[in-house]
Write a protein that binds this DNA or RNA. Structure first.
Lengths: 251, 251
DNA sequence: CGCGAGCTTGATGCCGATCAATGCATGTGG
DNA sequence: CCACATGCATTGATCGGCATCAAGCTCGCG
């Protein structure tokens, strides 16, 4: 198994030990524990004791798998995708540290999408029935969990707006702004980033072909908005990107 | 205020009285109470006592409104839409009897979309804090609520697949099949339906222009798949439609 | 070093957008 | 009851953005 390439990974920390409690996790301001009191978080600790490593290219879960747990990304980077019967597939999201995976599984007791690690990653396993029980006793946890699900719904609506009404340039600009904003919230630079996904995966997410993604990157570079070197992106003119968009949901 | 045009409405029942308890509501197999025991449902009754009438064209809530309640459609038909800063907007869903509105509001304590009645409608008001409390004491209710949220997420992923990778005909076919299936679950014919929305609203939902929607309807008619008279649709060849699609998520 | 996955760039074509005119149903006021 | 306005739907003609097809190119890696 390859070692975790911490220096090149979208993860603000290194793994000091095999176990890191929620209460001392530096992601607690981004993850499920947001807003919870110290005692509540300690309850979480007792539940979230298992961690799982997923090597780049491997699946955390796949369509049809029995649903048992949610997963919080601790280090690394994932994509989720659904596929149609005739083989086409659609990337429905990219998840980074502190974000939750597996919410789709609650509806049917089966997962309805694949979750693939785009780099060597580690997730915290959150057994769902335990989460349900615990959130019965801890109102704050319940509320936080509901907020996370709702946020996912709102995010999806934003993607629909993007897919339904924006043109290629707007889509890519919106995508980049979203990425940089999330990276910034995790303590990374808001201007320099390394893409963890291929042009094809970006295209799938944005409803474009990889060639169009590539051309649009080149166009942005010509216009001085970006510096593009393969997967290394430098945002030179974030305001310029923002002007292109104006298509994010109004709240 | 116009009277409820029950005969022409997507609603399997007439309103016998001002108050209908969840426990005796004929939508209980489609709505929040699914799978709940009799005593649990009676608890719901105590919470869901307020009903609200929304005339065609009016808004149940709009972007930015403070979030306080969820709404279960009792009679009628709604659309939800998000809009971008520059005015474009995107229909994110159509809701019929038994379906829940307002889940977007949980994330921020503000609604992030508009909900518009497409015909004179009535909703049951579900105060959110009460729902949270009640679902702490009734595990089945909690579970059911989570399933509904998760189902919305899964549905959204299906729409992303549609918007991201299907062509106009496939989109419209998928849309019609979805509508007829939901109507059938409510006891309506699976072949004859009346659209409650304009071509423009269908187009917005499907990421198409209204002219394209219209042309595609005409094409389907020429091919003998449908009979189209304005908003009255008769599905002549459901299998033909299904063959066009093959693009719904695989579970 | 050479292979291959992924990226870039060009040439061409098609699907759906756009623009525009007409048709159809409903409603309103003279 | 007719004339007219209005909102929605249909249909045609044209255009453009993105897909498609097809080379090369880059870079990491065995």
């Amino acid at each position: 198994m390859p070692i975790m390439a911490s220096m090149h990974s979208y993860t603000p920390i290194k793994l000091e030990a095999f176990k890191v409690a929620c209460s001392s996790c530096n992601l607690r301001e981004l993850c499920l524990p947001v807003g919870l009191s110290q005692p509540d978080i300690e309850q979480l600790d007792s539940m979230v004791s298992v961690r799982r490593t997923v090597a780049r290219g491997e699946m955390l879960f796949r369509t049809g798998d029995a649903f048992q747990s949610l997963y919080a990304v601790r280090t690394g980077f994932f994509k989720t995708c659904v596929s149609s019967e005739d083989g086409r597939d659609q990337v429905t999201g990219f998840q980074m540290a502190g974000e939750l995976l597996g919410l789709d599984g609650i509806s049917n007791d089966r997962h309805s999408c694949d979750a693939v690690a785009l780099e060597d990653s580690q997730v915290c396993v959150i057994p769902y029935t335990q989460l349900e029980e615990l959130s019965r006793d801890f109102g704050d946890l319940q509320r936080q969990f509901h907020k996370i699900m709702s946020r996912e719904i709102v995010r999806d609506h934003g993607v629909m707006l993007l897919l339904g009404s924006m043109r290629a340039e707007e889509r890519l600009a919106a995508f980049l702004l979203n990425l940089t904003q999330r990276l910034q919230a995790r303590g990374f630079s808001g201007s320099a980033l390394i893409l963890r996904m291929t042009r094809e995966e970006i295209g799938s997410y944005l409803g474009l072909k990889l060639e169009t993604v590539s051309r649009t990157f080149s166009k942005f570079q010509e216009e001085g908005l970006l510096e593009v070197k393969q997967r290394q992106i430098k945002v030179l003119d974030p305001e310029g990107l923002r002007k292109l968009v104006n298509g994010t949901p109004s709240c």
